[in-house]
Amino acid sequence: MIRKKEALSLYQKLVLVRLAEETIREEYFNDEMKTPVHLGIGAYAISVGVCHCLPSGAKTFGTYRNHALYLAVTGDTDGFFAELYGKLSGPGKGKAGSMHLCAPARGLMATSAVVGTTIPVAVGAALANAYRKGSDIVAVFFGDGAVEEGVFWESLNFASLKRLPVLFVCEDNNLAIHAHASERRGFRSIPDAVRAFDCHLGIGDGSDLLSVAQNTRAVLAQMTRDLKPGFLHFTYFRFLEHVGPREDFDAGYREKPGPKEMARLDPVRRLETELLRRGVASSAMEAIRAEASAKVRRSAEEAQKAPFAPPAELTTDVWA
């Protein structure tokens, strides 16, 4: 059971990501963020919830849809916006952009725009931990589409074979760009397929932050008792187009859910409802939102004003 105080701190993290992405949506059409943005509206509860539960010292890996992961791990809205605006003060000095945010000092080692490619790398990081007889774990986030790549199965097999301390986190929105799972998969369910491997499996509703956190804790506890990889499968609803700031329900490949369903699928409103039910005053949530909003606005403004990398930066960072 997650207590009220902890739930509120989760709310704080969740709202920060949401407001950061809403700011991107507002700013994007000014054409100053010259980077493709894969927004995660609907998905945040997964990164926020899982990262909240990871023990300190954990390493993380992710995909191009990494904003929530970056902010959940670092809370660093300054670096975040600087990178999106392509500025020198971003974590990648503007060389990375939205799709490759990382913060190795905070354990977020790499995110990749080639689907599935960080999965084996995370397994390698777990191998390094096991090799050194350390107890740290590694978590890797990927979409349901990544499961179609051979490298996913090869990595899961190797990790299970070697009993590596790696947590696979599948963020399943049932879509790869515009293609539904039914158009891409010749098997019935990802969890069922994963059950055939020697790993601990957790399944949950990725729109529900508190249950994400509970599921994560349960699997992490199993991993500690009986060292094997963990696998978390969370479903969620992607509110926006695959890449870019807009909704695209008029494109015809999927229906817009009704308002009640939309509220259930929105992790922020879902958590707000739960917090209200638990007796948290709406003014307390309002205060958290106001604080996050001010932080995001400050960071975005600073980033807009910040300088670009000088030309000499083009050729730095290639070689050690």
Partner: peptide, 16 residues
């Protein structure tokens, strides 16, 4: 191309 991986930010990309 410049002998580096392609950078994202426009000023460096224009040099790349």
């Amino acid at each position: 191309f410049a002998p580096v991986p392609c950078p994202t930010t426009r000023p460096l990309e224009n040099l790349f």
